[in-house]
Design a protein around this nucleic acid. Structure first.
Length: 452
RNA sequence: GCGCCGUUGGUGAAGUGGUUAACACGCUAGUUUGUGGCACUAGUAUGCAUGAGUUCGAUUCUCAUACGACGCCCCA
């Protein structure tokens, strides 16, 4: 048997419905914030990622899917979304558009050659947004609020927003030096990984889990102390705007993002649900003012955010969020002989065009099997097409919940189904708040009925 | 790249160095000649991830590979 590739997933059935739903919420939110969709290639020139994300980052040095195509070009499957968007921004001269800043969002698969574990795959799907051409702290706050609001719209409650500022290049370099100086005399007290980090990426020592309780680490200099005045003012502005938007956050000086291109505001949003495992960061982002010019475009201040959809779906499950997906059908058409089958084919089409979710039998089951199939599909109504009834221009429709059966004129079937389904929905939503029973909403007192 | 555990039918799984691999669910058919969901009866893995080895004999032991789960590094 040919198996799927390691760390890749087939998403189908109920899970696929949840994904589609999540994506629809993302689309809706992006629309409200006036971000437009951008679709860029899944593979790019290898150089883009090396120059853009940085040669020292793991996702470029050891986790990238590199290959040579038949024309001898060096190709890399994108490990993240920002580099491609920035390339597109430069190549399409979006900086010349009078409509600034450019606000775009994407949603697509990314590829990282890693060892799979909980919440981590080799092919992952991320959505994200980028604001290109604005240095306004309001943009930072807006991106964070958008990210948080998407999670809220999805119904997640147990989330935590961590923000930090790395400052501008000057501040960041000063801080880095100070940190190395600080740790150097004590480095023997730290774990092996941290000894490596001291050289490679000293900021990550702050995030070490092994040495988290080490006093030396706790007293380490903080990024915020090394911000120059301008950087500090800008970070304060971001916080002011977040406060105005009533976005809850915590300043966490240990947030250091993995990609080289970040400066100033960086943030991460984590799921605080029980049982999530170690990969509980749903999304993260930050400002990358130097990237566009580094890739050959004009000096352009930018900020972005990206979130893994797989982890998001996982979080929805862990939090037991009720996801409004359609899992039942309106009508299942049954038949026995060929004439009835033809009528089923005709009627199914008519009703589908009229907007109903209709299914019928395709595998030659007997009536007993068809009834079982109707139950499996959670059909709200069933209908056994009967030659005699059809001769009289009638059809019997059974409400699968009440088991009541009614004889309807064929001309009235659309009207009848419409009415019955509306009635059913009204019963399901008797308080009129627009939410089904069992859904957790605080709009009314009626929506917290027991769930089965 | 490193570590630990796992891999038996459509599904959940039990199990053994030796003729027919439990049990349950599901599915199909019949009892019920066109109205199911209950009940009963029957059927439902020529195979226990793949390859090699040990053995008279391996699904069971050993090794390798693949894949899965979890953790480390790193990250969404």
């Amino acid at each position: 048997m040919i198996q799927r590739q390691k760390g890749c997933n087939d998403i189908y059935g109920r899970e696929a419905k949840i994904w589609k739903y999540v994506e629809s919420v993302v689309d809706a939110a992006m629309e409200k914030y006036n971000y437009t969709f951008i679709r860029t290639p899944i593979f790019e020139a290898t150089e883009l990622f090396h120059r853009g994300i940085g040669d020292t980052t793991d996702i470029v040095t050891k986790e990238s899917y590199d290959f040579e195509d038949k024309g001898g070009r060096s190709i890399t499957l994108r490990p993240e979304g920002t580099a491609g968007v920035v390339r597109s921004y430069i190549e399409n001269k979006m900086y010349g558009d009078p409509n600034q800043p450019v606000k775009v969002y994407y949603n697509g698969t990314m590829y990282r050659y890693e060892r799979p574990q909980s919440g981590r795959d080799r092919e992952l799907t991320q959505f994200g947004m980028e604001v290109l051409g604005s240095d306004d702290p309001l943009s930072d706050a807006e991106v964070i609020s958008l990210a948080v609001n998407i999670y809220k719209m999805l119904g997640l409650k147990e989330i935590k927003v961590n923000i930090n500022s790395l400052g501008d290049t000057e501040s960041r370099n000063n801080y880095r030096e100070a940190l190395v100086e600080y740790f150097k005399p004590h480095i023997d007290d730290f774990c092996e990984d941290c000894k490596v980090r001291l050289e490679k990426n000293p900021l990550r020592i702050l995030d070490c889990k092994v040495d988290a309780e080490n006093e030396i680490l706790k007293n380490a200099p903080k990024t915020l102390d090394y911000l120059n005045e301008e950087s500090r003012d800008r970070f304060e502005k971001v916080q002011e705007y977040l406060d105005v938007m009533q976005i809850q956050y915590e300043i966490n000086p240990n947030i250091v993002r993995g990609l080289d291109y970040y400066n100033h505001t960086v943030f991460e949003i984590e799921a605080k649900v029980e049982g999530f495992g170690s990969n509980n960061v749903l999304g993260g982002g930050g400002r990358y003012n130097g990237l566009v010019s580094q890739l050959g475009g004009p000096e352009t201040p930018c900020i972005g955010f990206a979130s893994g959809i797989g982890r998001l779906v996982l979080a929805l499950e862990k939090e037991k969020v009720n996801v409004p997906i359609i899992e039942d059908i309106d009508l299942f058409l049954m038949y026995v002989n060929e004439d009835e089958k033809k009528y089923a084919a005709y009627l199914a089409q008519e009703l589908r065009m009229a907007g109903f979710i209709v299914d019928t039998e395709y595998t030659g089951r007997g009536l007993k099997g068809q009834f079982k199939q109707a139950d499996r599909l959670k059909a709200k109504f069933t209908c056994v097409l009967n030659s005699e009834d059809l001769d009289n221009n009638e059809v019997k429709i059974k409400n699968n919940k009440t088991k009541e059966e009614e004889v309807i004129s064929l001309d009235a079937i659309i009207y009848y189904l419409d009415e019955q389904l509306n009635l059913m929905e009204a019963e399901d939503d008797e308080c009129g708040c627009g939410h089904h029973h069992g859904e957790e909403h605080e709009c009314c007192g009626h929506c917290h009925h027991e769930e089965e």
